[in-house]
Design a protein around this nucleic acid. Sequence first.
DNA 1: GTCTATACGAGGATAGAC
DNA 2: GTCTATCCTCGTATAGAC
Lengths: 191, 191
Amino acid sequence: MKGKTAEQILDVAQDLVRRLGYSAFSYADISDQIGIRKASIHYHFPAKDELVKALVQRYRVLFQQQRQQIEQATSDPEQQLLRFAQLYQVGLQNNQLCLCNMLTADFAVLPDAIRQELKAFFAENETWLAKVLSKWILSGTAYSQVPVEVLAAQLLATLQGAQLLARASDASEERFSQIMTSFLGQLKREP
Amino acid sequence: MKGKTAEQILDVAQDLVRRLGYSAFSYADISDQIGIRKASIHYHFPAKDELVKALVQRYRVLFQQQRQQIEQATSDPEQQLLRFAQLYQVGLQNNQLCLCNMLTADFAVLPDAIRQELKAFFAENETWLAKVLSKWILSGTAYSQVPVEVLAAQLLATLQGAQLLARASDASEERFSQIMTSFLGQLKREP
DNA sequence: GTCTATACGAGGATAGAC
DNA sequence: GTCTATCCTCGTATAGAC
């Protein structure tokens, strides 16, 4: 059970990392935003590495919950994929990348513990996407020549890449959704 | 006509940015690798921003040349796309992302001049990809429901995303090529 | 838990000698 | 063009009082 301040620190830090990246954000930034001294942050998270590691762990849980919520909200595979894609799309409004998307760019400067967390994050999402894609194909309204595992990897890559590309665009959200629509359209087959 | 030292600085800096990102690399890193003092680097590139801007400008020219070389090497659109994808794949061996892929993650901390360069880079590549995809479809061996412009954006997003995902994988190159094969396979149609 | 104070190094950048 | 010397700021982190 984390304390309230610790959660607040994580909230602010998450936004900073998602916008600026691992190397570009600092304890001073967090300090400014929540009105607490730098030293106090070190009390909750002694080192930057540990803070970011906690960030990714929390993010993994969050995504697990969101995948569950999607399954409860609709049982239609295509709708489930669309909603999952929207998780990536909403961040664009605040110039945020997926936390793990950003940290993968910073991969070379991260300690191994965080790298393992990132790998786990992607593996979890790929497994889920493969499951949903499989359901979709079995329903007969979608078709693919390649195994669902590869298709899931391709979808995840498309989401990550579209999010990045959208960042360097004036109409980022339109750009993102256009790419996603294109991807899903390729899988659809006439019933 | 740039001097020899300036080129050398750019070479080393490019590797550093592609591996570590904009915020994580320093003049000291360059200094270490080419045996020149930090101050001497400032003679060639007074500010970090200018160095990176020169980096992207050179990279744009490089890609323009490589697209031309691809067109000269083969006239088969599918082969051209494969070769273009390989430009992204080779970097993985040295833990390098596409320079502009990495800098797009750092977008929020970059000055506007560099942001414009990045936009231009992506626009150029998309235009070219749309041209090649169009040729492929017109040849009758590929098919797509969506406009080639959107398909080009999707392909570029897939390349960028696959490169990132591969980074967080133990078998990065296999992972990358699997995703690309999957993408191209979806477009192929029996003649 | 949060504060002040501080240590220590790294990073970007400039001045001026050679 | 490259060097030494130096400046100043920022970033991470710790010690110890409250």
